[in-house]
Amino acid sequence: MSIDTFPELSALRVELAPHIRDRHLVEIVRAVRGEAVGRKAPAGISWRRWVGSLAATLTLLTPVAAAAADGAMPDDTLYPLKRALETIVRLVDRDVVAEHRIEELESLVTDDPTSPTVADLLPEARRAVRGIDSPQLVIRLAVIEVIVDQAWATAAPLDAAESADATSSDRPVDGEPVDEKRVDGEAVDDERVEDASRSDDETRTDEETTPTAATDAPVDNAPAPTISDAPPFTEAPRDGRSDPSEEGAEDRPGGEAAEAPAPAGDGDTPAGTGADNDPPRDLNDQTP
């Protein structure tokens, strides 16, 4: 089928707004320059500070420590303690975390809506707010987003990039819990044959089926760490499945490539698809 087979899907095509592009480019250029280590990297915070934070956490039951950390902002020394406390509080009351992020953003946006700290905290705040049922927080977040958008829309992106503070490496640790890291397990399994016999469209004569020199690289079957699709989707209820056997195959761990076999030696996997070329599962996971 050609791309125009589904004109309805054109409604899904979007174009990024100019101010969003500018904001992204500033962050990307900053990362390329090495000024930003990454969202999840606790850069600039030494182990001594973490030990100190841990020790402080051990004393978190003292109301003084908890109260002192409660108002900490991302650049403050006590901020890690605040985040540590939140991981405990979150088990009981998730709204607290979202409210903290909103409060921090409101304070930061007042000073500089285009600061890298704001850019880091915004996605986190969105995730936190999405997880709760609080219209007030949603409205407060919406106001913050409008302010940030307007600030970026009026800011000169290159100026912002040039003037980006090198201390952006002191950004706060991303608040994502450890268990939210991506899960390994998507095995390359091009050798499965079960679906091949069911396919009546393998004889598709698309021009793309013609192997070219660029596509004759061998299939890389290295067990590179990848994402497993199975957990989120096997749990999510879906309607309208008419092919249970097929869905069952997809639900199997490692069933990622179970649709049809890879022709032996046809080398139709494009060049540059080796394990080294896989996107990292996590910004902290850059070790070769």
Binding site: D190, E208, T215, E246, E256, E259, A260, P263, D268
Partner: peptide
Amino acid sequence: SGREIATVMRMSRPAVYAALTRAE
């Protein structure tokens, strides 16, 4: 293209075409 999708999805191209046809 089918080749690019095969790379993204870590599937062989015939598998991409077969699954895509069913999906379509």
